[in-house]
């Protein structure tokens, strides 16, 4: 099991920032490292103001040549299931990867807090990665170590790093005049 955490500070107030992360994330996919696209698969607006979202992420990381026959392009992505609080202070999320789906459990919470005297925000991203060793047994013995390393890299590094870049890109979007499509 691996815990990961990422704290990002930006010069945009917390609520507009959170709203933009929730509603406009697809617009910044092109600015993110090794991300092809982010598409909202489903959205459910709850009566209390909360939102349940499923976004599909497609990524194109540099897979080592030795693993390329094991990790095919259709595996490179995940579904991001998220449940946003009505006040936009936090969202709980769960990642459902296309690669070794049954072996990987990854979930966490993202919090948006006011900072810089209300002029900015801190976005804290915390998650946990759990890989089921028994599921890994389907992988040939000689490839288990590199496969687990690849999984750890993809999920333990790529996702938090992309979270940072996502928040910074969304803040940039707001700074250049863009407004969230759905006000909180």
């Amino acid at each position: 099991m691996k815990d990961f955490r990422c704290l990002v500070g930006v010069r945009q107030p917390a609520r507009p920032l959170a709203a933009a992360v929730r509603d406009r994330i697809g617009q910044v996919a092109g600015q993110l490292e090794q991300v092809e696209h982010i598409v909202t698969v489903s959205r459910l607006d709850r009566p209390d103001g909360g939102v349940a979202l499923v976004n599909e992420w497609r990524v194109n990381p540099d897979v080592p040549p030795a693993l390329q026959h094991l990790v095919t392009p259709d595996m490179l992505g995940w579904l991001d299931h998220s449940e946003w609080e009505p006040g936009l202070g936090a969202c709980r999320w769960r990642i459902e990867p296309f690669f070794m789906r049954e072996a990987i459990r990854c979930d966490g919470v993202t919090r948006f807090e006011p900072a810089m005297g209300g002029r900015g925000a801190r976005a804290a991203f915390e998650g946990r990665l759990d890989i089921d060793p028994s599921a890994l047994s389907t992988v040939p013995m000689s490839w288990r170590a590199p496969a687990s390393l690849a999984v750890e890299f993809l999920i333990g590094t790529l996702i938090p790093r992309n979270f940072r870049k996502t928040v910074e890109a969304v803040a940039g979007l707001l700074e250049t005049g863009g407004q969230p499509t759905s006000a909180p």
């Binding site: 990002v8 900072a115 810089m116 002029r119 900015g120």
Partner: peptide, 17 residues
């Protein structure tokens, strides 16, 4: 990361007030 002046100031304890 987080070494931009505004962010670092916030994280080091400046309250902007």
């Amino acid at each position: 990361e987080n070494r931009d002046v505004f962010v670092a100031a916030d994280l080091l304890g400046y309250r902007y007030e």
